[in-house]
Amino acid sequence: MKPSSLIICRCEEVTIEQLEQAYQTGSCTSRQLKMKTRASMGACQGRVCRQLVDAWVHDKDPDSPHDAELLSYRPPIRPITFGQLAKGEL
């Protein structure tokens, strides 16, 4: 197995290779990489991989800022059914 085929985001099955390709085509922050590759947009909402995506970006560019805004959180932060959501909103 090549290291480049290492999966970084399990939910969306995004590999290091895909991050690399996205980076080469101009997605340089963790937020841009997320938008481009869907890394950290899966069922766990980045709870498993957001630290990895951040670490990967900082390895690429040690001067990039540690900005929490780059990978923000939005509700719902846990997977819920439409039924659960509707009960809270009706």
């Binding site: 197995m1 290492l6 999966i7 498993v48 991989c49 990895l52």
Partner: peptide
């Protein structure tokens, strides 16, 4: 707190 994984080939 939550855990940070340590990805290694074959970690899935």
């Amino acid at each position: 707190a939550a855990e940070i994984p340590m990805p290694t080939c074959g970690w899935t």
